[in-house]
Design a protein around this nucleic acid. Sequence first.
DNA 1: ATGAAAGCGCTAACAA
DNA 2: TTGTTAGCGCTTTCAT
Lengths: 339, 339
Amino acid sequence: MVERVTSLEVAKRAGVSQSAVSRVYTPGASVSAKTAEKVKTAAAELGYRPNVLARAMVSGKSRIIGLVVAYLENYFYPEALEKLSNALQERGYHVLIFMASQTAGNISSVVDEILDYQVDGIVMASVALSSEVGSRCQAAGVPVVLFNRSQDMDDISSVTSDNFEGGRKVAHLLCDLGHERIGYIAGWEGASTQRDREAGFLAGLRAHNETLYAREVGDFHADRTKTATLAMFDKPANERPDAVFVANDHMAFVVMDILRHDLGLRVPEDISVVGYDDVPPAAWRSYDLTTVRQRANLMVEQTVATILHHIEHPNQMTPKKIQIDSPLIIRSSTRQERK
Amino acid sequence: MVERVTSLEVAKRAGVSQSAVSRVYTPGASVSAKTAEKVKTAAAELGYRPNVLARAMVSGKSRIIGLVVAYLENYFYPEALEKLSNALQERGYHVLIFMASQTAGNISSVVDEILDYQVDGIVMASVALSSEVGSRCQAAGVPVVLFNRSQDMDDISSVTSDNFEGGRKVAHLLCDLGHERIGYIAGWEGASTQRDREAGFLAGLRAHNETLYAREVGDFHADRTKTATLAMFDKPANERPDAVFVANDHMAFVVMDILRHDLGLRVPEDISVVGYDDVPPAAWRSYDLTTVRQRANLMVEQTVATILHHIEHPNQMTPKKIQIDSPLIIRSSTRQERK
DNA sequence: ATGAAAGCGCTAACAA
DNA sequence: TTGTTAGCGCTTTCAT
């Protein structure tokens, strides 16, 4: 175990003051090329690196972004997390993870923990947070950006895909394909993504003078989706939907598996299935799911830009509500042409 | 934006010294019930919470664990990450994420960044790290635990599943089922997991007086796995393997999809397929993959125990090499009985 | 451009 | 049990 090297030791070896060393590592500080060289040499010889925590304490900037996530079971999140972390790393920030377990009371303590770490900003990717939580962080002077969720009438920035428009595109597709009995399997109804997708979907149907034939709730949850699917499809051919929009890809996989393996139905010949997210397995041959793509890259890019903007302009608190266009990806889980 | 509340302000309001306040938040410090009450009341009124960073600076313990990950595309990792973060959170630690991008030179700088944050320990879950990197952290006095990878002849602790034994179990299964032309699709050959799984598999075959009929390399990579699969199976029935062990689940999904959809073969009637990891999609009906389960819960538990042990006993540097038993999970991608 | 000095908010001896 | 004091390693005035 090697002892930590401090700026003071580097200063001594370089024959300069401790503050000179500090300046060398402070972008924009005034140091002569000569001192900079001396310091860098000494630092290299000693293996010196500035202590981020000490810097954070005095500067008030930790260069840490707190990330609150609830469930990584939806493969959209690991993807986003990876990109987010990379993007922040490139800008000299790092991600401190806070897992928000199910319990609601727990969430509140999570916020306290985050604040304890003096994070410069917070990204909330968890669906189940009360709006109060975000506001509390804002009140503490820590900017917050909601990722993949939104809230009406509040003062928190958010980045989402255009869920309403995405839902509408699905309605158009299914109507254009000539489907006549269209079902919807909803996600957890507390989620803004679920609400917006459904609202857009219904608006789209209306535009075609169609109406929803059946609706069940899957809650973004495998078991409940199974129940919902059976309730919707375990009936004679002329009574069940001939197409279904499922509020996210993971539920859509469950739906497809049940249709095919439990009910012996064919996708898309008997039933067209559409999902939402375009997580990687949607492109796997066994599913090849028609879906709405949430463009993780763009969403992350905007999230990073927004949080950094808030960090750099602490006074300017106007929230940004960013919606990323989400294209329809047509694969083979939907009929290929009007029947 | 609310100003930060310091322990000094709490002290004033409570009518005690600043160190009294500190003691109230230091487990095991001696404070009278009366002072504790006064302090807690004042703290609550002011909304005070100790500054973790300041505490870290003086105590030398940040209660931050650095986690190095390379690719979250393998769904074993998000699962592990979630459990790891939860387990550490319960013990008052938090996870700072470091994404190790592809470039090898990059890795080295990642280590510097980690060390800058004065992390108390490091978990490396990335497959592509040189042993030199881990050693450098150890040398800096920061304990390291390798997660899901191991290295021979070195001084770093690691937690893996029993990959050798897992591979052997697969060989036994396939031999018991009467398979006669058995293939293996390897992962990236630099990975210890790949090497151990293959070694165990070969040892198992040998025990049955069987020998490997075909071998290709998929590199834990979808495209290369596709090429490997075609090279192995795109030939007459009597020339191709009748069973294949694939070094991880994700490659196995690709193999199954190609067998079924490109080559028109049936699994398991024509070919039995076995994977490794038991990631969630392995249990999805479309794959229902026979596989070796890496028990993420146990692996994480041991990882946490090990890293905390090293943190709490800094002098006792004997590395631990922990292997978790990995059970064979038999599903329907393998023949159900001897033919 | 540089050094001296004053803290950032806290913990940990040390006395009392 | 308590208060006083001295830092942890750094950034940042303020002189020079």
